[in-house]
């Protein structure tokens, strides 16, 4: 089992740091490109959401830990923004109204659907979001 860690300050868009973090993790796990893309997308969307909405662009710690396990690659994201459970705010109904009807919500929408397992818990005063993709995806 291998571990990777990235801590960002939640100021500005962390997309490029996240890209490098997931790329290294995916390479270490030998993830197929499609799985690596999905993990990057979900990790980017959640981390960006924390920076923009959780910390309201004022900054705060976002701690990402990646782990390669026999069956899955797991990314655990922790932050100290106000409690927010993404699974309780699935924007699917609004998105279904039409892609030009809403301006927001696509990030969570994509994150919730891009990984094979998505979990949230608020523990010790921190939000903890866990994202998993299978190392060998069923059906590609």
């Amino acid at each position: 089992m291998t571990a990777h860690r990235l801590v960002v300050d939640g100021l500005g868009a962390p997309s490029r740091l996240v890209a490098g973090f997931v790329s290294a993790l995916a390479a270490c796990a030998g993830l197929p490109p499609r799985q690596a893309y999905r993990l990057r997308l979900a990790t980017d969307e959640i981390t960006t959401n924390i920076a923009v909405h959780g910390y309201r662009d004022r900054g705060g710690p976002v701690d990402l830990r990646g782990r390669v396990e026999p069956e899955v690659v797991r990314v655990c994201i922790e932050d100290e923004a106000p409690p927010f459970d993404p699974t309780g705010h699935d924007p699917a109904p609004r998105v279904a109204a039409g892609p030009t009807a809403v301006l927001g919500g696509y990030g969570l929408f994509l994150a919730l659907r891009s990984v094979d397992h998505f979990a949230y818990v608020h523990v010790g005063g921190r939000n903890r979001t866990t994202l998993c993709v299978l190392r060998c995806a069923a059906g590609g």
Partner: peptide, 16 residues
């Protein structure tokens, strides 16, 4: 090689 929700919002902007 990569497009996130920020790119989708660009499409909304283009449409508007």
């Amino acid at each position: 090689d990569y497009l996130s929700s920020a790119g989708l919002r660009c499409l909304v902007f283009a449409h508007q």
